[in-house]
Amino acid sequence: MTHLYNMTLAEMEQWLADMGEPKYRAKQIFQWLYQHRVTSFDEMTNLPKALRERLSAEAKLGTAREITRQVSRVDGTVKFLLGWTDDVTVETVLMRHDYGNSVCVSTQVGCKMGCTFCASTLGGMIRQMTAGEMVEQLLYSQRLLDESGERVSSIVLMGSGEPMDNYDAAMKFIDIVNDPNGLNIGQRHITISTVGLVPGIRRLADDGRPITLAVSLHAATDEQRSAMMPVNKAYPIAKLLEACHYYHEKTGKRISFEYALIGGKNDSLEDARRLAELLRDLPSHVNLIPVNYVPERNYQRTPKEEIQAFLTELRNLGVNATVRREMGHDISAACGQLRAEHAGTV
């Protein structure tokens, strides 16, 4: 059956035309899906009954089911664990900020990148998410926000998985949620996070999309980074930064660098100085992230006073940096952690 959430408006128009239906019906269906957020074809009341019956027979709306939901008592962060008919699970997170509501979307079931500080990699890579499955993740958060008259204001492709390893589906997802006939979430309010897949960064630069690029750096030397992130062996820091410079030159946008502070590993003042030197000529912002505890990894969290010293050193050296506000730290906040717990691998 055809999965409607997996279609752009243009694809839906062509699909209906192939069925012998007028193309304008596509816009009506699209608006029912994303502006009214209906959950059945019967609710699409401006469609002929015969078309609704045909849609019920030949197409499907959501295929995901909610397995569990965790709500932070600290800051209202909501974490959904969703399941699909092939028994895979992914998680998506709704974060409430002073400036709006952000949703973190998973692009893959599991991950093959092998970063040692991340729970997403514990079960390996299972399969790619389709664009429609990413849309479904977003809609779970939006429907919850509908209860209080709010909306999703920004999206981060930073849940389980590596978006650049599922590039076409990720970009299709962005096209669907960006459509003014649908959710109308501007591309400038969408961030794509990568461990540093250089071909993907260059492709994104050439595509000219005004989305924000976030790069997981986490170390300032190849020795350190390769020990934590196997991808560095294929795309070492010099190649990665070359691609980042290319991205900035093509788009004019500064790049966000994620840097997880791990006690005794990458959190010394000398590490801060090396990081500042790497980014000296690149318009960027550094997000310092106190590492989440994952039992298998046994990484130690950098003490608060040392985090502040690292931040101060970066700023003194001219680096635009902040410490990321922790969200939902009481509800399995690390990417992939809730899924891993459900699967029994944590």
Rank of each mutant, 00 (worst) to 15 (best):
L204C: 13
I237P: 04
E13T: 00
K265T: 08
S226V: 09
R151Y: 07
L241V: 00
Q308N: 07
Q142W: 00
L16I: 01
V38R: 06
C118W: 10
V135H: 08
W84R: 13
Q35M: 11
T8C: 09
P199G: 14
Q28W: 01
Q128G: 08
Q14E: 08
T68W: 08
D18V: 05
T68S: 15
T45C: 00
V93E: 03
W15H: 07
E21T: 09
I176W: 02
T322M: 05
E270S: 01
Q337V: 04
N320Q: 13
M228S: 02
K250C: 05
V38M: 14
N181K: 07
A276K: 04
V294T: 12
Y5Q: 07
V103C: 12
K304I: 09
S216M: 10
S154L: 00
K239R: 13
K265M: 07
R297L: 10
H97P: 03
L81R: 02
H245F: 12
K304W: 14
I126G: 02
M44A: 01
E277I: 01
R225I: 11
Q128W: 12
Y167T: 03
F257I: 12
G318Q: 13
D281I: 03
E53F: 10
G149N: 15
G182C: 11
R143N: 14
E270R: 05
R280V: 14
N232P: 09
L33K: 12
A334C: 09
H189N: 15
